[in-house]
């Protein structure tokens, strides 16, 4: 399963500059809105599902080398955060759906916890 499949099936909005999503293959999934938990719990090359949109999410994703962040419930990162993500090569995706819904869909598609 590629990030391209995930974006299509979950109808996600791409917030950062598009890259070749078909070449990105997420290996696992994680969800939490407490960044301290994410820093110790999320695995590299995973997808992180959260409703946090603060700029700190970019640094956390860069630190852990995550495949992408899916920001849920229409939480909107500001322009500085999106610019920072582009700078760091972090993919930001968004949806109006809840974290529960997104995780359920990802699980159905075969993604598992790390």
């Amino acid at each position: 399963m590629t990030l391209q499949d995930i974006i299509q099936q979950l109808n996600l909005t791409v917030l950062t500059t598009p890259v070749d999503f078909a070449s990105v293959q997420p290996e696992n999934g994680y969800t939490s809105d407490l960044l301290s938990c994410v820093m110790s719990g999320a695995k590299s090359r995973g997808i992180w599902v959260t409703l946090q949109a603060h700029m700190n999410i970019v640094a956390v994703a860069a630190l852990l080398e995550l495949a992408a962040i899916i920001i849920t419930e229409d939480a909107q990162p500001d322009l500085a955060t999106i610019a920072k993500a582009n700078e760091e090569g972090i993919i930001l995706l968004s949806t109006a759906q809840s974290s529960f819904f997104v995780c359920g869909k990802l699980w159905e598609m075969g993604l598992r916890a790390g």
């Binding site: 960044l35 301290s36 938990c37 994410v38 946090q52 700029m55 700190n56 956390v60």
Partner: peptide, 11 residues
């Protein structure tokens, strides 16, 4: 702050 945002926003 440290639980929710992980660290002090440097910006």
């Amino acid at each position: 702050l440290l639980a929710n945002l992980g660290f002090v926003p440097p910006e």
